[in-house]
Computed example of a mutant assay.
Amino acid sequence: MSRMSLRTSAHPSDLLTLLREREPLVQCITNAVVTGFTANVLLALGASPAMVDIPGEAGGFARIASGLLVNLGTPTGEQRDAAREAVAAAAEAAVPWVLDPVAVGALPVRTALARELLLHKPTIVRGNASEILALAGAGAGGRGVDATDSAEAAEEAARGLALLTGGAVAVSGPVDLVTDGTTVVRVANGHALLTRVTGGGCALGAVMAAFAGAATATAIATSPGSGPDTDGPAHASRALDAAVAASSVYGIAAEHAARSAAGPGSFAVGLLDALAALDAPAVRAEARLS
Rank of each mutant, 00 (worst) to 15 (best):
G213T: 08
G213F: 09
G213Q: 06
A214F: 11
A214Q: 08
A214K: 06
T216L: 05
T216Q: 14
T216M: 14
A217C: 13
A217V: 04
A217P: 09
T218K: 15
A219G: 03
I220C: 02
I220W: 05
I220A: 00
I220Y: 02
I220Q: 00
A221C: 02
T222E: 15
G225N: 02
G225P: 05
S226D: 13
G227P: 07
P228K: 00
D229F: 15
T230P: 09
T230K: 05
T230N: 07
D231P: 06
G232R: 02
P233T: 05
P233Q: 06
A234V: 10
H235K: 13
A236W: 12
A236M: 07
A236T: 10
A236V: 08
A236Y: 09
A236C: 11
S237D: 15
R238H: 06
R238S: 04
A239R: 08
A239H: 12
A239W: 10
L240V: 12
L240S: 08
L240Y: 11
D241M: 06
A242S: 15
A243P: 13
A243K: 12
V244N: 13
V244R: 09
A245D: 11
A245H: 14
A246S: 09
A246K: 06
S247M: 13
S248W: 05
S248H: 07
V249P: 09
V249M: 12
V249H: 11
Y250A: 03
G251K: 04
I252H: 11
I252F: 10
A253Q: 04
A254C: 06
A254V: 08
E255P: 14
H256W: 10
H256T: 07
H256N: 12
A257G: 13
A257R: 08
A257L: 13
A257Y: 10
A258P: 05
R259N: 05
A261C: 04
A262V: 13
P264S: 00
G265S: 10
G265A: 04
S266H: 14
S266K: 13
F267K: 05
F267W: 07
F267E: 03
A268R: 06
V269G: 00
V269P: 00
V269C: 00
V269H: 01
G270R: 01
G270L: 01
G270Q: 02
G270A: 03
G270N: 02
L271A: 00
L271G: 01
L271D: 00
L271E: 04
L272S: 01
L272P: 00
D273N: 14
L275V: 01
A277V: 03
A277R: 12
A277N: 03
D279Y: 03
D279V: 01
A280R: 13
A280I: 12
A280E: 15
P281S: 02
R284P: 02
R284Q: 11
R284H: 12
A285Y: 06
A285K: 11
E286F: 02
E286P: 00
A287P: 03
A287H: 07
R288H: 00
